[in-house]
Design a binder for these strands. Structure first.
Lengths: 91, 91
DNA sequence: GACAAAGTTCACGTATACGTTAACATTATC
DNA sequence: GATAATGTTAACGTATACGTGAACTTTGTC
């Protein structure tokens, strides 16, 4: 368990109301970080990805950082834009 | 390759414009079918899943059949409602 | 074939993901 | 440290996923 996880546990102990809100944000944090990593692996800038998706770099930044949620289709096209496949499993 | 795939190939040969539109719909078809299968595996009705998600059975039917797109958060909570985990990979 | 349970489809309203612009911040590169 | 390239954030408009109720269809079950 890393430092972030430890921090989260402490916050939940102190303030139970904190948990639920953060769970949601935490998931999205992971997705954004995943997508950013995929983009960097591909050696692309946000602007380059934006062009492939017919949008602007600000939208890419939002997805990688502050997006509260994301459509499956957006996830798929982002993955395609950075040359990766999106695998989905319900297990 | 099953009959559906054969049908799709024929349609694409006859009408190239058909391909792109269907790709999108096809993906969503698969997701809906996946979720339906997961629900049946769990032995739940649409109405039971709907209650867990604080919504109505008509919404579940739409997701399983006609949904054009779906939010990641919806995907996650649907999976949770039928007792499964959603795994996501960008590879 | 009557009845109930389960599922489908439509229509309309609301919440929100995404497009876009503009201003600002951060990080190279010289 | 000036300049450019890259990334961030806020604000507002549009497109669309989802909530909901009602009418209908399908699928058991007797």
């Amino acid at each position: 368990m890393d430092d972030l996880d430890k921090y989260i546990e402490k916050r939940i102990q102190k303030n139970p109301g904190f948990a639920k809100c953060f769970d949601q944000g935490y998931e999205q944090f992971k997705i954004g970080a995943m997508l950013k990593q995929a983009r960097l692996d591909a050696g692309l800038t946000q602007e380059q990805v934006a062009e492939k998706l017919h949008t602007k770099k600000s939208a890419i930044s939002r997805i990688e950082n502050h997006a509260e949620d994301i459509r499956l289709s957006t996830l798929e096209s982002f993955a395609a834009a950075v040359g990766k496949n999106l695998r989905l499993e319900v297990a």
